[in-house]
């Protein structure tokens, strides 16, 4: 969840000035659930500011 929120803040230009990527119009968020050592889920999301 925090990965999505971080990406949305970057795309909106709302991140702290020290970490805001200039003209951030394309972002990816990726997550892992479970444990990579035996079984896990993976999900990727790509978002664009228009």
């Amino acid at each position: 969840m925090t990965k999505i929120i971080e990406a949305v803040r970057q795309l909106r230009g709302e991140a702290h000035a020290k970490v805001q990527v200039p003209n951030c119009n394309l972002a990816l968020a990726h997550g892992t659930g479970g444990a990579i050592g035996h079984r896990h889920g993976s999900a990727t999301l790509i978002m664009e500011r228009v």
Partner: peptide, 17 residues
């Protein structure tokens, strides 16, 4: 009244043994 953030792609899966 907010910047518009479009969802443009996604992928999901599970990896196991």
């Amino acid at each position: 009244k907010r910047p518009v953030v479009n969802i443009i792609g996604a992928g999901e899966t599970t990896k196991h043994q």
